[in-house]
Each structure stands twice: as C-alpha cells, then as structure tokens.
Amino acid sequence: KLATQLLVDLAEGCHTHHFNSLLDIIEKVMARSLSPPPELEERDVAAYSASLEDVKTAVLGLLVILQTKLYTLPASHATRVYEMLVSHIQLHYKHSYTLPIASSIRLQAFDFLLLLRADSLHRLGLPNKDGVVRFSPYCVCDYMEPERGSEKKTSGPLSPPTGPPGPAPAGPAVRLGSVPYSLLFRVLLQCLKQESDWKVLKLVLGRLPESLRYKVLIFTSPCSVDQLCSALCSMLSGPKTLERLRGAPEGFSRTDLHLAVVPVLTALISYHNYLDKTKQREMVYCLEQGLIHRCASQCVVALSICSVEMPDIIIKALPVLVVKLTHISATASMAVPLLEFLSTLARLPHLYRNFAAEQYASVFAISLPYTNPSKFNQYIVCLAHHVIAMWFIRCRLPFRKDFVPFITKGLRSNVLLSFDDTPEKDSFRARSTSLNERPKSLRIARPPKQGLNNSPPVKEFKESSAAEAFRCRSISVSEHVVRSRIQTSLTSASLGSADENSVAQADDSLKN
C-alpha cells in the first residue's frame, strides 16, 4: 500500500515521458482480481479485503492524478488516466466483483467521474469546493483527430461559456486531449443493469440528472440515450432489480426505487427528439405506474413536462391518465402538482379535443376538493377555482348544463359547509355539551343533603334557569346568529318608530 501511494505521488508530479512508465506499474497493481477465492469463508472476507487495499489506493490515486492532469500539459496524460479508470470499473462488472472493498472503489470512482462538466467549447471541467466549475483549456469531451486539434480549438462557441476559464495555453502548437464521455456513459449503463450494491446505484441515480443537464457531454460523443431510457424503464418494470440489490435499508421496496429513478426519467424528457417513439411510450408508462407510489408528485410534474414536450405520445394516454388521477387523495403535497398539471393542460386544447364527459367530470372531481379553505392555503384554493373556471369555459357547450349541479354541489360541500365545521365551532359545541352534562353527573355522584345545603333556594333556581338558558342557546349557533340579527333589526325599527313618536309629541306641545 505504501509503495503504491509512492508511485501515485511520483506520477502526479511527473510531466515527462516517465509518466507512462509509472502508470504501467500502477496498472499492474490495479489488475489484481477482486473476486474472493471459492474456499474463502465468510468470517475471512474482511481479512481478505484488507489485503486488497493497494488496489483501492491505486484507483483513488488515479482520481487525484486526473484532477491534476486535467489542467496541465501534456493533455495525453489526462486521457491515459481517464481510460485506465474506466477500464478498471468495466472489469468490476465483467467479473461481478461483490466484495465490500470493490463496492467502495466503485462508489468513490463514480462520485468523482460524475462531477465532470463541459461548456459550449466542449472543454471539460470539475467543480471546486465552492461549486464553481473550472474548465480545462487542454482537454475536450469529444473524440478528435490529433492533427485537427487546433482547428477544433478555434471553432466558434455554440453558446457563451460558463465558469471561469483555465490558464491560457503555452503556445499555438498545443494539442488538445480527448476525454470522450461515451466511455464513462457505457460504464454507467452497465451499472444500471448489473450493479448489486444499493449505495452505488443510489449515488449514480442521484448524480445523473445533473450530468444530463450538460448536453454537450452527451452529444459530442456516441452516447446512446435510447439505451439509457431502456435501462431505466427496465429497472422499474422488471422484477429482478430488487432481487439483485443488497445493502438496502430495512423496509426497502419498489417505492424507494421509483423515488430514485423518476428524477432521471424527468431529466431525460428533454432528450425526447433523440428517443425512439417506443422508448417515449415506455417512459410515459413508467411515470403512470409511479402514481400509486410515494413519488406521485414527481410523476405528475414529469407528466406535465411530457404534455408539452411529447404531445404525440401523451395524447393517447391522457384520457386514461386523467381518470387515474382521480384516485389520488387530496393532500397538501399533491395539490400544487395536480392543479398545475390541469392548468397547463387547459392551455393545450389539441390534447383534450377528444375528451368525453367522463374526462371533464374527472377534472372537476380532482379540483373541487382543493377549494376547501379550511384545509388548504390561499394559493391552492385560488388555483383550484382557476382550474375549475378554465375547464368549465373550455368544455363543450352540451356538457356545461350537466356539470353545473355537479360543480355547485362540490363547491357547497367544500367551501360553504367548511365554515360550519371549523375547529372553533366544534370545540365550542364540545364545551357546551360538557357543561350540559356536568351538573347531571355531579348530582348522581353527590346527592344534595338538605341539612348541609347552605345555598338559598332562590340562588339554586337562578343557577338552574341560567344553565337551561345556556343549553337552549348552545343548540345551534347558526340559529342563534339568525335570531339575533332579526331581533337587532326589529329593535332598531322599534327604536326608530319611538323616536318619531317622541318628536311628534314635542311638536304638538310647542304648538300648544
């Protein structure tokens, strides 16, 4: 292990032709098999893994070397290190390495390699500790012929580059190093199909959405987006994914797998022009299946994007999809995704031109529960009313008269009656009930004795009459309010007539 670390330190600071010789020695160290011998017992696995620490030291050392060589000349050094790393990870899946030390190597290698970024000039870069990406002036992410390196360097940008540029090249004859992302992409596909350690798979799935944002990485080298989509959909639809995973937390289920895969599918929607129609349908189907899991909100957001990006695919699945959405409970976490999906859909009339009455009724059935102001915040309630109004205007004229009683009944049950079921009123009724029952229970537990009763009969009569009056008032709060309003209006009217009579009498006395 110490000798391997010494080789790594020497290679990191070497800029001459001896660098390749040092890498040859490190490569021989990495070539050791990580498969346990067949006769190895389970209690000896930890000791055997400790004997392979030099392999881990070599791989982690290459990660440090690549981070240094990416910004220094010659660029061919970075290319050689990158290829060695990718080849080593491929061996893991070729020979099915399952030892804990092998999983640790893959975890740290993917953690580093999935941080690679590219700008519009195809320059590769890595983020620093502050998250700012520094791009290399010597390494690009696409394949290029050595003699055409300078031509590639002087080509115009596709868009303004992001991030601070690296140091300027030493001279005009500098050759750019090619670090094609397709090599890593193929290893990522192998990981999605064969990885057995949940920690490694979770890391890859968590980092892929951010990497897919940099389309330069994908399009400048032959990366098959179709295969990526197929691998992701197979993970969700195939039963073998959960069987092969180990190291998963207790209670791990298909729902947890959906939570990890759906963000990658959402990021892949922007590549729909490069996906086969069959793959697009598979993607939409997987998102529909996710509606029954805890990732339902993410799936609804993804389907909203699909309705804009892939209208030809979503239009066929939309009638059944809208009916499925009615089975989702009206909760605060689902309110905004569902209502925004319906609001977006209302502005795309070509998608729902074939809707029948059942689909329009489903839209109103989804939106009406969110009009309850005692359960949802003001934004959700306003958005629900907006969706109902928009869809009522957009639905066909023959359907409107049939939906009017349905909508008014839903609004009455969710908006008007919600004020009668407020917690304050319920607590008031509970308190009044307890007050009504309390005197009775006290009389049963403690019967009054005439000799020891010091309270006069008049006081008892007053208290009983007050309790009886309170019971009468607490029967119905709404009736009490109505009666008080009527009494107030009658009182004001009587006072007004009394004032008029007094004024008339005063005038008569003055005349006399």
Rank of each mutant, 00 (worst) to 15 (best):
K69M: 01
L242S: 05
N128E: 06
R244P: 02
W198V: 03
L217D: 02
H77W: 04
K199F: 07
Y181W: 07
S230R: 06
P137T: 11
L203I: 10
C191Q: 00
L236C: 12
G251T: 06
G247K: 06
G61D: 01
T162N: 13
V133F: 14
V132W: 08
L242A: 08
C141D: 02
S178Y: 13
L183K: 10
M84R: 03
L63W: 03
A58T: 01
T241G: 05
L52P: 01
L126N: 03
M235K: 01
V225W: 02
T98F: 07
G238A: 10
V204W: 00
S150L: 11
P157H: 11
P100S: 05
T79Q: 14
G131Q: 05
S49T: 08
T154G: 12
A78C: 05
K129R: 11
Y214V: 04
V200L: 02
H92Y: 00
L91K: 11
C223L: 03
F185E: 02
P157C: 11
S49F: 03
L212W: 00
G247A: 07
P160E: 10
G177N: 08
S159T: 10
L242C: 09
Q67A: 05
D226E: 13
V59Y: 06
V133M: 14
L232S: 00
P160W: 05
Q194A: 10
C233H: 04
L60T: 14
L245V: 07
V204I: 05
K240P: 04
L121W: 11
H95Q: 11
R106N: 00
A58M: 00
A102S: 07
L115Y: 12
K129Y: 10
K240A: 13
S221N: 03
A50K: 10
L189Y: 03
G247L: 05
I101P: 03
E243C: 07
L184W: 05
S96R: 11
R207S: 03
L208V: 03
A78N: 01
R106W: 00
S87I: 04
L63P: 09
C223M: 02
L245D: 02
R80C: 03
S136F: 01
M84A: 08
I105A: 01
V132Y: 11
F135I: 05
E147M: 11
Q190T: 11
L242E: 08
L99K: 01
P222W: 02
P100R: 04
C191S: 04
R117Y: 01
Q227C: 10
P209L: 04
T57M: 05
Y143V: 11
D130V: 09
R213F: 05
H92M: 01
S76V: 07
C141P: 03
K94Y: 13
C139Q: 07
C223W: 02
L60M: 12
V55M: 02
F252Q: 02
G131S: 05
E151I: 14
K202C: 04
N128Y: 05
R175N: 07
S159Q: 10
R244M: 05
P74S: 03
Y138R: 03
Y82F: 12
T98Y: 07
L203R: 07
L183T: 11
V133W: 15
P180T: 04
P180W: 01
S136Y: 01
G166C: 11
E210G: 06
L183A: 10
S49W: 03
L205N: 00
V64M: 11
L126T: 05
L52M: 11
R244S: 05
R175P: 11
S224W: 04
